[in-house]
Simulated scan of single mutants.
Amino acid sequence: MLNIGAHLTISKGYEKAALEAISIEANTFQFFTRNPRGAKARELDLEDIQRLDRICKAHGFVSLLAHAPYTYNLASPDAETWELAKRLLRDDLDRLQYMESCHYMALHPGSHVKNGIVSGILRIAEGLNDILTGKENTMILLEGMSGKGTEVGSCFEELKAIIDKIEYGDKIGVCLDTCHLYSAGYDIVNSLDQVLEEFDKIVGLSKLKAIHLNDSMVAFGSRKDRHARIGEGTIGLEALVRFIQHPVIRNLPILLETPNEVEGYGEEIRLLREKFEK
């Protein structure tokens, strides 16, 4: 069975988002923990969360995926920026403790802001070690990036270097994004087996917990992050279907982040379910 969903808004509540997911034939969904370009979070509504959990259980949802805002930068050399990211991420984890249906939270590792990859890696690891207690119900998933600008985490070696420095390593996993992989120079179109074998050798497949499924507007190895609708980009429908059919990937939660409204996500989900089964 294909475990697939899309990025949905929780502005009207978690229950509404779950019902929206069901309406597009999804059995999971992704949501931002707070304003993706800011710091404000919606008021914690435990009854809404309980209704969400009941719906997810009744409909056989796999784990939801929370997503940290883009404003968090644990790689930053700036003390104020770094402390803010730590404080808000800790608050996100505390809030997610109430949500039984969400076990994972995707996090962009951050940008070293011209301070160097090594400095960025050390900064991220130190920040996560300050935050994690080992008692969290939610695993932080470092998201593999496209490599634009001074991003950290566009290669498997960088993700591994961060993970190796975390005291509570069992609370850290990885989320791979097909657009980011392709833009970072991992040829998932022509060499998917080799890419996954490389990930296993460097990071370990046991750390791979979720997938962001996106086509790409830009060329292979461009190191740019421009998502395209499924089948409308340089990766293409055929390669993306092969990706989700791969034995390593097929049972993971797969989340769409394509430039779409809810109806468009539904069309993509139906298309991918049809192709997946063939």
Rank of each mutant, 00 (worst) to 15 (best):
G5D: 11
G5V: 10
A6Q: 05
T9A: 15
S11K: 03
K12V: 04
A17S: 12
A21Q: 02
A21N: 02
I22A: 02
F32L: 07
N35Y: 05
R37A: 08
R37D: 07
G38D: 01
A39S: 15
D53L: 02
R54Y: 12
K57D: 11
A58T: 11
L65Y: 06
A66I: 04
H67A: 06
T71S: 13
N73I: 03
E80G: 13
A85R: 02
K86C: 15
D91R: 07
L96I: 04
Q97A: 12
M99K: 13
M99Q: 09
L107G: 01
N115D: 14
I117D: 13
I117V: 15
I121H: 00
R123C: 08
A125G: 11
N129A: 01
L132M: 04
E136A: 03
N137E: 05
T138Y: 03
T138W: 05
E143F: 01
S146V: 12
S146D: 13
T150R: 02
T150L: 02
T150N: 07
T150M: 00
E151W: 07
G153W: 02
C155A: 11
I163E: 06
D164E: 14
K171R: 13
V174Q: 05
D177P: 05
T178I: 08
L181A: 03
S183A: 15
A184R: 10
I188E: 05
I188K: 03
V189S: 10
D200P: 06
I202S: 10
V218P: 04
K224G: 01
K224H: 05
R226C: 10
R226W: 11
T234E: 14
L237N: 08
F243D: 08
V248T: 13
I254N: 11
I254S: 08
L255I: 15
E257M: 10
E257A: 08
E257L: 05
E261P: 04
G264K: 06
E268N: 10
I269N: 00
R273T: 00
F276V: 06
